[in-house]
Nucleic acid binder design. Sequence first.
DNA 1: GTCCATGCAAACCTTTTGCACTATA
DNA 2: TATAGTGCAAAAGGTTTGCATGGAC
Lengths: 166, 166
Amino acid sequence: MSATTKADAYIRLFSRYLREQGLPVTHQREVVADIVFSSGEHLSVDDIEREVRAAGERIGKATIYRTLDLLVKSNLVGEHDFGEGFKRYEHRLSREPIHEHLICLHCGTVIEFQDSGVHRIEALVTAEHGFRPTRHKLEIYGLCRECQLAGIALPREGLTCPIDSV
Amino acid sequence: MSATTKADAYIRLFSRYLREQGLPVTHQREVVADIVFSSGEHLSVDDIEREVRAAGERIGKATIYRTLDLLVKSNLVGEHDFGEGFKRYEHRLSREPIHEHLICLHCGTVIEFQDSGVHRIEALVTAEHGFRPTRHKLEIYGLCRECQLAGIALPREGLTCPIDSV
DNA sequence: GTCCATGCAAACCTTTTGCACTATA
DNA sequence: TATAGTGCAAAAGGTTTGCATGGAC
């Protein structure tokens, strides 16, 4: 359980949220929050469980899930689904709170990037469809530089250009 | 089991794909393909199962899953996960094969829209990160016009503006 | 002291798999 | 006739829930 001053500040923020909601601040919640806030990665529940054990703590999986729910509700943590069959969590306390993801289909690396283009698109759909956006998800899947250099090629399957062949 | 000429053509396309792969064209595969190609919706496996029964057919759930795998592999059908805990499928045979989704957080309606902005973003990340995109997913969650007019408001939870409050 | 959280195990839900049987080519 | 598909049920895997116990306030 690392304890940078930054992570500490975020844990205090989470504690404040819990108190605001009238919920107890428990040791388990602090441990899970510390792990998530101290990491720059997109953590799976398994990752978190492993770090809990590495820190010499014993916290049930259900408690981890329940704490993650609270962290997500508090808006301090974001939940992601990169199509792996399980979810990943990352804290939102970087200087770039809103960012998009590049996901390498070969090695699974996740690269974060920022682009204001989505805001333009959001403004557009508001105008065109009367839709009021609250959040969005932009994920670009492909091959990262390293995998390209390693000569990896993604298999092409299926019919190509189905429309033309009708 | 509807049978517009359009859906028929698509089923033939799927049959061609199966033959190309040396796989048998079975009745079950044709029925599932017909349902997916005849629908303009984003169908869940449950939806498909229901339509199978409505058509007087009896097809096991496993076969539906296995056929959907083939449809996705053929590139004729797209798989989506809107965070509901299960997947949805839609055929890719509209005149706008690549499109993004607006998902209403209240009523669940899915609106499709097109925007070339993502291509600009993809070109950008290729230049900046050496990433080679193959596909992307842009989903914007919020309130559709109807729900706004109905006076629906999404609850604001969590700490607001966490960064400033550190 | 009250209320909520925790831990464990069981339940849940979607999706996948094993296997005996059937249908395609 | 050989090969692959189908249906059923069981398994798998991530996530949720019920309940008795323990901890926060």
